[in-house]
């Protein structure tokens, strides 16, 4: 199965270059088949008007059979969105990144899902277990077994 991730990511990259990204999503960097960065903005009326976030994707050689590790970047430039499913360290509690991952999903597909997750947010707040989680969280969110706060995302 060598090369499945690179073949698939090359194909996704080609699509992004030829067809462009959906509104509010932009490719920041995709220099290799291990880590990509994309920016994310919620269009229209929402709690996050004017805020721009960045997502970090990390891929294993078995991608897309295995889910990518996805998190919001927390840097000088980017903040983690205040959302009941997003921890302050950028980790995201969303079942499609874990048990509900399907190899049919793509990088852009994940971005769009997270975009709509933010768009539908009614109240900006952190997950109730934020402090405890962030204190003990592993570097890679894939090593966390999340109990999904609600399984619609």
């Amino acid at each position: 199965m060598a090369g499945i991730a690179s073949r698939r990511l090359a194909k996704e990259l080609k699509e992004i270059h030829t067809q462009g990204c959906p509104v509010g999503i932009q490719l920041l960097s995709a220099d290799n088949f291990e880590e990509w960065h994309l920016s994310l903005e919620v269009m229209g009326d929402s709690q996050y008007q004017g805020e721009v976030f960045a997502l970090k994707f990390r891929f294993e050689p078995q991608y897309p059979i295995s889910a990518p590790a996805v998190q919001f970047m927390v840097t000088d430039k980017y903040k983690s969105p205040v959302h009941p499913h997003v921890y302050s360290n950028g980790h995201i509690c969303a079942s499609i990144l874990g048990t509900e991952w399907s190899p049919v999903l793509s990088v852009i597909g994940v971005c769009v899902t997270l975009q709509s997750m933010l768009a539908s947010c009614k109240k900006k707040e952190r997950p109730p277990d934020n402090d405890r989680y962030v204190r003990h969280a592993p570097d890679n969110p894939k090593q966390t077994r999340f109990h999904y706060h609600d399984d619609t995302v």
Binding site: I108, G109, V112, T113
Partner: peptide
């Protein structure tokens, strides 16, 4: 509604923000 990577046409966002 699927969020799958499209292979057959341009990716469009629907009103719900999904593919």
């Amino acid at each position: 509604v699927s969020r799958a990577a499209s292979t057959t046409g341009p990716t469009r966002t629907t009103r719900s923000g999904k593919l």
